[in-house]
Protein backbone atom coordinates (compact mmCIF):
# COMPACT_ATOMS: atom_id res chain seq x y z
CA UNK A 1 0.00 0.00 0.00
CA UNK A 2 1.17 3.47 -0.86
CA UNK A 3 -0.22 6.68 0.59
CA UNK A 4 -1.13 9.15 -2.15
CA UNK A 5 -2.24 12.76 -2.23
CA UNK A 6 -5.85 11.57 -2.67
CA UNK A 7 -5.55 9.51 0.55
CA UNK A 8 -4.28 12.53 2.49
CA UNK A 9 -7.13 14.68 1.13
CA UNK A 10 -9.62 11.96 2.18
CA UNK A 11 -8.16 11.88 5.71
CA UNK A 12 -8.42 15.65 6.06
CA UNK A 13 -11.96 15.61 4.69
CA UNK A 14 -12.98 13.02 7.30
CA UNK A 15 -12.03 15.47 10.06
CA UNK A 16 -15.33 17.17 9.07
CA UNK A 17 -13.93 20.69 9.09
CA UNK A 18 -13.94 21.45 5.36
CA UNK A 19 -15.63 20.49 2.09
CA UNK A 20 -13.84 17.95 -0.05
CA UNK A 21 -13.09 20.41 -2.88
CA UNK A 22 -11.77 22.93 -0.34
CA UNK A 23 -9.44 20.35 1.18
CA UNK A 24 -8.07 19.45 -2.26
CA UNK A 25 -7.37 23.13 -2.97
CA UNK A 26 -5.69 23.65 0.40
CA UNK A 27 -3.40 20.67 -0.11
CA UNK A 28 -2.44 21.96 -3.59
CA UNK A 29 -1.73 25.42 -2.16
CA UNK A 30 0.42 23.95 0.60
CA UNK A 31 2.46 21.86 -1.84
CA UNK A 32 2.84 24.84 -4.17
CA UNK A 33 4.27 27.00 -1.36
CA UNK A 34 6.78 24.30 -0.42
CA UNK A 35 7.82 23.86 -4.06
CA UNK A 36 8.19 27.64 -4.57
CA UNK A 37 10.43 27.97 -1.53
CA UNK A 38 12.65 25.08 -2.62
CA UNK A 39 12.75 26.55 -6.13
CA UNK A 40 13.96 29.83 -4.59
CA UNK A 41 16.78 27.88 -2.92
CA UNK A 42 15.30 27.90 0.58
CA UNK A 43 15.39 24.83 2.84
CA UNK A 44 12.16 23.70 4.52
CA UNK A 45 12.35 22.45 8.08
CA UNK A 46 9.32 20.57 9.38
CA UNK A 47 10.02 19.80 13.03
CA UNK A 48 9.17 16.21 13.93
CA UNK A 49 9.30 15.17 10.27
CA UNK A 50 12.49 16.30 8.61
CA UNK A 51 14.24 18.86 6.48
CA UNK A 52 14.09 19.34 2.73
CA UNK A 53 17.42 20.78 1.65
CA UNK A 54 18.67 22.37 -1.54
CA UNK A 55 22.17 21.31 -2.51
CA UNK A 56 24.31 22.78 -5.24
CA UNK A 57 26.56 20.34 -7.02
CA UNK A 58 29.47 21.75 -8.95
CA UNK A 59 30.31 20.68 -12.49
CA UNK A 60 32.40 17.55 -12.71
CA UNK A 61 34.01 15.27 -15.22
CA UNK A 62 32.07 12.14 -15.94
CA UNK A 63 31.84 9.46 -18.56
CA UNK A 64 29.17 8.35 -20.93
CA UNK A 65 28.56 4.88 -19.48
CA UNK A 66 27.71 3.58 -22.94
CA UNK A 67 30.72 4.74 -24.92
CA UNK A 68 33.19 5.47 -22.10
CA UNK A 69 33.67 8.90 -23.65
CA UNK A 70 34.65 11.60 -21.08
CA UNK A 71 32.09 14.40 -20.72
CA UNK A 72 31.69 17.49 -18.55
CA UNK A 73 28.62 17.31 -16.33
CA UNK A 74 27.02 20.69 -15.79
CA UNK A 75 26.42 22.09 -12.26
CA UNK A 76 23.20 20.74 -10.78
CA UNK A 77 20.88 21.74 -7.98
CA UNK A 78 19.14 18.92 -6.14
CA UNK A 79 16.62 18.42 -3.35
CA UNK A 80 17.55 16.12 -0.48
CA UNK A 81 15.60 15.01 2.57
CA UNK A 82 17.01 14.51 6.07
CA UNK A 83 14.57 12.71 8.38
CA UNK A 84 14.17 14.04 11.91
CA UNK A 85 15.10 11.85 14.88
CA UNK A 86 11.42 11.53 15.75
CA UNK A 87 10.51 10.20 12.31
CA UNK A 88 13.44 7.75 12.39
CA UNK A 89 12.34 6.48 15.81
CA UNK A 90 8.75 5.98 14.66
CA UNK A 91 9.84 4.08 11.57
CA UNK A 92 12.01 1.83 13.73
CA UNK A 93 9.18 1.25 16.23
CA UNK A 94 10.88 3.10 19.08
Amino acid sequence: MTLTKADIIEKLYRAEKFKRTEVANYVETLLEIIKEKLEAGEDILISGFGKFCIKDKGSRRGRNPHTGEPIILEPRRIVTFRPSGKLRDKINGR
Binding site: M1, T2, L30, F49
Partner: peptide, 15 residues
Protein backbone atom coordinates in the same frame (compact mmCIF):
# COMPACT_ATOMS: atom_id res chain seq x y z
CA UNK B 1 -4.30 21.75 11.48
CA UNK B 2 -3.91 20.97 7.76
CA UNK B 3 -0.10 21.14 7.85
CA UNK B 4 0.09 18.94 10.95
CA UNK B 5 -2.33 16.35 9.57
CA UNK B 6 -0.57 16.38 6.21
CA UNK B 7 2.78 15.43 7.76
CA UNK B 8 1.16 13.12 10.34
CA UNK B 9 -0.48 11.12 7.56
CA UNK B 10 2.91 10.64 5.88
CA UNK B 11 4.59 9.78 9.19
CA UNK B 12 1.92 7.16 10.00
CA UNK B 13 2.22 5.55 6.57
CA UNK B 14 6.03 5.36 6.86
CA UNK B 15 5.81 4.03 10.44
Amino acid sequence: FIIKEFFNAMTDALA
